[in-house]
């Protein structure tokens, strides 16, 4: 890496930093219960819960395991389970 003049940085480059390693609890998404409302996605601080075929899933590379998605899911479709490493 060569430094840029004035420390100008490139967009979206924090993706190099996989924050999934911070996680203690892991959200597990139950597709059968998911109604596709997208509330989990709106509240995710990492912005990594995405829709695929009307169902939502997270990106474990970055999920810090905060548990907001599970707390806010109106259908109880997300469960936090202890991460086993």
């Amino acid at each position: 890496m060569k430094l840029s003049v004035g420390a100008v940085a490139e967009p979206g480059s924090t993706r190099a930093n996989k924050t999934g390693t911070w996680r203690t609890f892991r959200p597990v998404f139950n597709a059968d219960l998911c109604v596709g409302c997208g509330i989990c996605s709106q509240f995710c601080p990492e912005g990594i819960i995405h829709e695929k075929n009307d169902k939502y899933a997270t990106d474990y590379d970055y999920c810090k395991g905060c548990g907001i998605c599970a707390a806010e899911c109106p259908k109880g479709a997300i469960k936090m389970v202890l991460e086993v490493k």
Partner: peptide, 23 residues
Amino acid sequence: MKLLAPGHRGCAGCGAAIAVHSI
């Protein structure tokens, strides 16, 4: 794609990051 990329150093459950996503 969200306009605040993951990999940021906000604490787990960071409200400020949620605010930015909504904005």
